[in-house]
Design a binder for these strands. Structure first.
Lengths: 337, 337
DNA sequence: TTGAAAGCGATACCAG
DNA sequence: CTGGTATCGCTTTCAA
């Protein structure tokens, strides 16, 4: 039988040492009821002497709560999600709750499986960071525990979800490029099945239309939200001889790849071609040139996600305003005449 | 009293539904003993009908094991540690163990506190990713549970630790720069209290000496392993009028900052100045120019860490070879005459 | 092969 | 204010 290899004191040990009952020790620990000064002191001494730590497994079993919240992210390597993760960490700090983080790798079946595992561990609540589950699946899970989802709109009894306004930000990006004099703007798309990617593309298209700029479909090339996709996309653009003065990359990673492709051909940024990204990853501050992009307030979002989930678990009311995306102007876009 | 808001079936529920005893259900679940085919089938049906999932809290209490391992990282935002994290995740996959990740933020007291929390949650083992605890503290913790530490050498009964050979890699970096004709090589150091940073500096110094190149202390400037430190360092070098043809940055982040500082002054890389980093963060592949740096096999290390910890928890023997660091040649270093 | 019952460690009810 | 006791859900003797 698996067994912790070190002895651990229990409430009973402490009780014996202090000459009181286990119930009294428990009451002292939780402040559930008054304990006389004499016993309080005896208990305190016993606790330090035995180096007693409550067994959270036992507490959890008894209380029906593990004091853990499950977090389904997609990949621990993503600077994007990790910013949300530290926000969640921050919201949980000092609450006694710890996040149990699992990765779904953008694969619906893996995501569902991880969530089942989380539920088996009796997490008290669940955060779902985008992914490929259907809303219906999430709603089904929410019958079993409260859920806050990021990357989709949801408003059910036990589930809440929101996403950033990618469409609006994409419009701003395109507007900005047009203001700077760009007319032929290439767009490197993200995965076609991702909502964010779709919204960004739509923002681009609609804004061009609003400005009466004819859409050239040759200027829209597929990408995969990775560096390699950006690189390939620019290669394709260049090899098929497209003319353009600016690139709207689906996200920052794509912009990195695009920038490298230009570098390879000695095309200067922003002198020859302007680039704009989306996400504002930490490293975008230090690319050469520093990347103009859209800031996603993920830390802030993560923090609010944590706070909201805590409230849901407590059956408290909450309000939620989605933090806005904002254009951060750096140096990768140039005004042209 | 806190309570899971959704009903969950228990072994007793399943037992009643299947017309057997709870003990039999348990035996079936764990394969502890033979169960007749008839009962097996009845139990299987009951389980699916009731959607039964074992309560891991109860199992953990009974078995004295949470089937969880604690992982102390320093920051979830670090691309460096996160690569190790996914390695650990990978090693644990399919074992029934889940990692409980906490962050210490390079602060010994916070690290110790998080570890206590992990122990209260009865994690079965612990991974410590560098940090600022003393070896003695870690050894003390190892009386309570098995520990694998990364970033320090440790070989005790219940604790094992290793680090990469930063010194050797730093020697290789410096050798390489010298081979390429560089003699005046600036070094941007990391935090003085970090072992890795010390080893890299020592490798740089010793290698210069071995090549009989006089050490110019003005060429060694402090950094902080962050972009800003790299930027400031190069500014300082330039403003105090140092002559140098190459920069050995303490790590990749530092190299990013250094590269930006050069860009700001229109100093070309590698035409005018060569730069070499350390870590091989994912984005270093796509900087302009792509960064020559030292690859740290963190995923691999993380995976082995997980495997070793599992063995330690099982009281199995294990051997361990530290994966080697390797120079990855890209385009930020130029040969000079 | 199977069931009854004890026990993991903590909490809360009920008496006193 | 305090102690005894039942209970959370599961595993594991001990008997049958």
């Amino acid at each position: 039988m698996a067994q912790n290899n070190s002895f651990s004191a229990t409430v009973y040990g402490v009780a014996r040492e202090a000459g009181v009952s286990a119930a009294t020790v428990s009451r002292f620990l939780n402040g559930t009821a008054k304990v006389s000064d004499a016993k309080r002191e005896a208990i305190e001494n016993a606790i330090t002497k035995l180096n007693y730590k409550p067994n959270m497994l036992a507490q959890g079993l008894k209380m029906g709560s593990s004091r853990t919240i499950g977090v389904l992210t997609q990949s621990l390597i993503s600077g994007y999600f990790n910013e949300a993760l530290i926000g969640i960490e921050d919201a949980l700090k000092g609450t006694g709750y710890a996040p149990l983080i699992v990765s779904g790798h953008w694969h619906a079946s893996e995501e569902a499986e991880r969530i089942e595992l989380l539920i088996a561990r009796r997490v008290d609540g669940l955060v779902i960071l985008t992914g490929n589950l259907t809303d219906a699946q999430i709603l089904a899970f929410s019958q079993r525990l409260p859920i806050v989802a990021f990357g989709r709109e949801l408003a059910a009894k036990n589930a809440f979800g929101f996403s950033f306004d990618n469409y609006k930000a994409a419009c701003e990006v395109t507007d900005y490029l047009i203001e700077q004099g760009h007319r032929r703007i290439a767009f490197i798309a993200g995965p076609e099945d991702q909502e964010d990617a779709k919204a960004r593309l739509a923002g681009y298209q609609d804004t061009l239309a609003r400005h009466k700029i004819e859409l050239d479909v040759k200027l829209i090339v597929p990408g995969d939200f990775q560096e390699s996709g950006g690189l390939l996309a620019v290669n394709q653009l260049l090899e098929t001889g497209q003319r353009f003065t600016a690139i709207f990359a689906g996200n920052d990673l794509t912009a990195y790849g695009a920038r490298l492709a230009l570098y390879r051909r000695s095309i200067r940024v922003p002198d020859d071609i302007s680039i704009i990204g989306f996400d504002d990853l930490h490293s975008s501050m230090c690319t050469t040139p520093p990347l103009t992009t859209v800031r996603q307030p993920l830390f802030d979002a993560g923090k609010r996600i944590g706070q909201v989930l805590l409230k849901m678990m407590n059956n408290e009311k909450f309000t939620f305003d989605v933090p806005p995306l904002s254009l951060v102007l750096r140096e990768s876009v140039r005004r042209i005449s």
